[in-house]
Write a protein that binds this DNA or RNA. Structure first.
Lengths: 204, 204
DNA sequence: GTCATATTTGACACTCGGTGTCATACGCGG
DNA sequence: CCGCGTATGACACCGAGTGTCAAATATGAC
């Protein structure tokens, strides 16, 4: 247990440096665009060498979208906790409340909107973003398959359902982002997901 | 008109060099993995310099997934041609017959399956693939919005519906790819898309 | 066939993202 | 104050991708 305090300490300072880097980098991205800003510039603006930057982020992309790595497990746990009598579609909608909170958060709104614009308009970032989403989806598929009592290895429906739910999430996000963003993101997501009705799974 | 023949000629030889490069590169990828093969190795194996490689493909990724750029417009046209009385979901399924033909094509099956494995297992490629898909989706959204008579700038449903259809396509593709691949890909896609029923769009 | 012209190619130098290595500086517990 | 482990910077290096320019090659007119 004597090893705990220093580790926690290091981890804390590490987080601080990371968020400092994130802020500095985002300001530069907003000013000049993602691709026009080099890692060396970010590092210099944060008072460190390029080599040290890569000790805090595994890549330039990671600085922007790395945070989504943490989301996946949270979502899967959140799905596991949903009551069994709830429909799969409804359960997924409730799981997405996590995103709704994130999008609605008034403290982050300005900054998040700016970064979203940059991600949407930078193909490399958008690609990486979609890949993260696809990883989250995979983590949820197992839970959905279990709920439906079907085998995800031979039945495409768990993947299709989770993918469709994420498609709703992304579509709502884009529309929301291009709207005036008054009120909550929740109803927009509800609209998107309400376009679908799931047939009860049939045995095969 | 005298300018036509040479252009067609150059374009033809260009295609030939491109497909030669693709074959050579795919063989190398299958042997050693995408990332382990350098562009210089591909170029050397095809008897040209690295600089010349980049005159035929804008990037290493482009060599693998660049062909999908052409799909988008075809899909959009294909949707525009679907009869108006057909439901949106059914129309999208019919548009996907294009993919079904592609996947079923017995001449390409072996090679395509090998490349699919590589794309699935290489994050950078998978990300780029998803990004291409997302571009195709955008091209179809307008047509879907028109069919439904709703405004895609303020209503998330066109994007959600197209995205959901593509989610079915991807899920079916993954499941298909992990199956014995006997028979046609079509029924697998039907299964995935049959999990959903679309509510008729309501005015807002 | 010959010449003029346009295109293709290779060679080279360069930028940027990312990694391995090593010596040094720093913070901490004894 | 000393020893130890971690953080850092400097440097060299690799691979993807681009700009430039000169040489090679193909094309068209005559």
């Amino acid at each position: 247990m004597t090893a705990d305090p220093p580790i926690a300490m290091r981890e804390r300072t590490r987080r601080i440096v990371q968020s400092e880097l994130t802020v500095v980098a985002q300001d530069l991205f907003v000013e000049s665009g993602y691709e026009a800003v080099t890692v060396e510039q970010i590092a210099a603006a944060a008072g460190m060498s390029k080599r040290t930057f890569f000790r805090y982020f595994s890549s330039k992309e990671d600085l922007v979208i790395g945070k989504y790595d943490l989301f996946g497990d949270k979502l899967a746990e959140s799905l596991a906790v949903r009551p069994a009598e709830e429909s799969v579609w409804e359960a997924l909608r409730r799981v997405f409340d996590f995103f709704v909170e994130y999008v609605d958060d008034p403290k982050l709104r300005e900054r998040r909107a700016a970064m979203e614009r940059i991600v949407q308009s930078t193909p490399a970032l958008n690609a990486a973003y979609l890949e993260k989403m696809s990883r989250m989806q995979k983590l949820l598929e197992e839970g959905v398959a279990a709920r439906l009592g079907i085998d995800q290895r031979t039945d495409p429906r768990p993947g299709a359902i989770v993918g469709a739910a994420f498609a709703c999430l992304l579509a709502a996000q884009v529309t929301w982002h291009e709207s005036d963003q008054a009120g909550s993101f929740g109803p927009m997501l509800d609209d998107a997901m309400a376009a679908f009705h799931l047939y009860p799974p049939t045995a095969r």
